[in-house]
């Protein structure tokens, strides 16, 4: 047995000497040398061996996201993970959403930014129950950030949670937070082509909101081209074209939010019945 690690396979040193193969090709050859030297287990030379891993690199996040999802399901809380580039109008849309729905719906908002609490301050001013998460060096929210807020801030009584992710079209798409719905926001001022330039985020979205429609007269932007880019990466998700400023198209979005809530509670009562 090897004195370094206690394993019982033939030594790297020996197999390399005998077979004369470079390090990388060593592994297949090791099987042979193992048989040859299997009698001799008292050598104390270092051993090279292969260890199968196989797990996801972001395994910790995947597991935590699943735990979050279970917690949300238990408490019948639908969760929207809202993602977009910085400056697409997520916070403004949420301000208007709070003003329209806060009386009928008890919803919590978690808003992520690297620094500052401007978004939370803005949302507080319109009466939202909101908490700022500062990710500092990190470019996205992760499942641990959300988990830390479940018991205290979100609480079992919330009827809906909206997570306003860090403004970024790349990284947030790779980190599951345990949400039930992913919403991508794309503003007209960003141009029509962002969905195909940043495909993963738009592909994963359950709903795509095209914001700042009131600015279209001032832009070289056409809805048809934008829609083509969206459909290349996401053939099925509904697309809501709206302007939070003028209120154009807002009904569809508000209806969507209310429907998420009623679906979550009816699924919850169905589970109760099945119990």
């Amino acid at each position: 047995m090897c004195q370094d690690c206690g394993c019982e396979i033939a030594t790297d040193l020996i197999s390399r000497k005998i077979l004369g193969v470079p390090q990388v090709q060593q592994v297949q050859k090791l099987q042979i040398s193992q048989e040859v030297f299997s009698e001799d287990r008292n050598r104390s030379t270092p051993v090279s061996r292969r260890i199968e891993m196989g797990q996801a690199i972001v395994e910790k996040n995947i597991q935590q996201a699943e735990l979050n999802r279970m917690w949300f399901r238990t408490h019948q809380i639908p969760v929207i993970n809202m993602m977009s580039a910085p400056g697409s109008g997520k916070t403004y849309l949420l301000e208007k959403t709070v003003q329209a729905l806060a009386d009928s719906l008890d919803f919590a908002i978690l808003t992520g930014d690297q620094e500052m609490s401007y978004d939370a301050d803005r949302l507080k001013r319109v009466g939202a129950r909101v908490k700022q998460i500062n990710t500092l060096s990190s470019c996205h929210l992760n499942a641990q950030h959300i988990e830390a807020e479940l018991q205290g801030f979100v609480g079992a009584r919330s009827q809906l949670l909206v997570i306003e992710n860090v403004g970024n079209l790349v990284c947030p798409a790779a980190f599951d937070l345990g949400e039930s719905h992913k919403v991508a926001v794309l503003s007209t001022t960003e141009g029509e082509d962002k969905p195909t330039k940043y495909p993963l985020l738009f592909h994963e979205a359950d709903l795509i909101i095209v914001s700042k429609m009131d600015l279209v007269p001032y832009l070289d932007w056409t809805q048809e081209v934008c829609q083509q880019h969206i459909r290349k990466v996401n053939p099925n998700a509904p697309i809501f074209y709206l302007s939070a400023k003028t209120g154009e198209g807002m009904e569809a979005w508000l209806k969507y939010v209310q429907t998420l809530r009623s679906e979550a509670t009816s699924m919850g009562s169905l589970r109760e019945v099945l119990k």
Partner: peptide
């Protein structure tokens, strides 16, 4: 195409 995994290690 969405994989992000450690396949294996060669170790001493």
């Amino acid at each position: 195409g969405k994989e992000l995994r450690i396949v294996d290690l060669d170790v001493d």
